[in-house]
Computed example of a mutant assay.
Amino acid sequence: MARNIFRMSFAKIYPLYVDKVERKQRSRAELDEVIEWLTGYDEAALQRVLADEVDLETFFEQAPAFNPNATLITGVICGVRVEEIEDPLMQKVRYLDKLVDELARGKKLTSILRAA
């Protein structure tokens, strides 16, 4: 089951993230900032990933600079504590899910991006 999610195109998941944050009066630009902070993709690279319909596994494996502060992301997503997920790829997917949830819940960007 988990392997199936890794084969999903990031371009199919991204609009769901956009819908989620925009329903809560957050912007696509804020979502992109969160994604860029976590993965190291810049705006142009993120647009290429979306246009090329890269799968989640490739999206995370080719992330230019996965943020070392991602380990500061804690809490429960889908009933599981993100810091306890053993599969490194699934943990990265859930880190992103957690950040999107925080954005949609109205948390400040400085807090979401784990700024000091």
Results as ranks from 00 to 15, higher is better:
Ile73Thr: 10
Val80Leu: 13
Leu99Asp: 03
Phe10Gln: 08
Lys24Ala: 11
Val76Arg: 11
Leu89Lys: 13
Phe59Val: 05
Ser9Trp: 04
Glu84Phe: 00
Arg28Cys: 05
Pro15Ile: 08
Ala51Ile: 08
Arg26Gly: 07
Thr58Val: 09
Gln47Pro: 10
Tyr17Leu: 12
Phe59Gly: 06
Asp97Thr: 10
Leu96Val: 10
Leu72Glu: 03
Ile13Glu: 04
Leu16Ile: 14
Phe66Gly: 10
Ala45Asp: 07
Leu103Ala: 10
Arg48Val: 05
Val18Trp: 00
Ala51Gly: 09
Glu53Ile: 07
Val100Asp: 07
Ala11Trp: 02
Lys20Ser: 06
Gly79Tyr: 00
Glu30Asn: 10
Leu109Glu: 03
Asp101Gly: 15
Val18Asp: 01
Leu31Pro: 07
Glu83Pro: 14
Thr58Asn: 04
Gln91Gly: 10
Thr39Gly: 11
Lys24Asp: 01
Gln62Pro: 12
Leu109Cys: 11
Ala70Trp: 05
Asn67Cys: 09
Lys20Cys: 06
Ser111Trp: 02
Val34Trp: 03
Asp101Ser: 13
Ala116Pro: 15
Ala115Cys: 12
Leu103Asp: 02
Asp101Glu: 14
Leu56Ser: 02
Arg105Ile: 00
Ala65Glu: 03
Ala29Phe: 08
Ala44Gly: 11
Pro64Lys: 12
Asp97Gly: 14
Thr71Asn: 08
Thr110Gly: 12
Pro68Ala: 01
Asp97His: 15
Gln47Asp: 06
Asn67Glu: 05
Tyr14Gly: 13
Asp52Pro: 10
Arg48Trp: 00
Trp37Met: 06
Cys78Lys: 11
Lys24Leu: 06
Pro88His: 02
Ser9Thr: 02
Ile85Glu: 01
Pro68Lys: 04
Phe66Trp: 10
Ile112Trp: 06
Asn69Trp: 02
Trp37Arg: 13
Gly40Tyr: 02
Thr58Phe: 00
Tyr41Cys: 13
Gly106Thr: 08
Arg23Ile: 02
Val93Gly: 07
Ile13Pro: 10
Ile77Leu: 05
Asp19Lys: 15
Pro68His: 00
Ile112Thr: 08
Pro88Met: 03
Leu31Asp: 00
Gln47Arg: 15
Leu31Ser: 02
Glu33Tyr: 03
Glu30Arg: 14
Leu72Trp: 00
Ile5Asn: 09
Val49Gly: 07
Val54Asp: 01
Ala116Glu: 09
Val80Ala: 08
Leu89Ile: 12
Gln62Glu: 05
Gly40Gln: 01
Ala70Leu: 03
Leu38Ile: 06
Val82Leu: 04
Leu31Met: 04
Asp97Met: 14
Met8Asn: 08
Tyr14His: 14
Lys98Gly: 08
Val82Asp: 03
Thr71Arg: 14
Gly40Trp: 03
Ala70Tyr: 05
Val82Ala: 04
Glu30Gln: 15
Phe6Ile: 06
Gly79Thr: 01
Arg3Val: 06
Asp32Cys: 13
Ser9Leu: 07
Lys108Phe: 00
Glu22Asp: 01
Leu16Ser: 07
Lys98Arg: 15
Arg114Val: 09
Arg114Ala: 09
Met1Trp: 04
Glu30Ser: 13
Tyr95Ala: 13
Asp101Trp: 06
Arg48Ala: 09
Ala104Asp: 03
Lys98Thr: 08
Met8Trp: 03
Asn69Ala: 11
Asp42Arg: 15
Val18Arg: 13
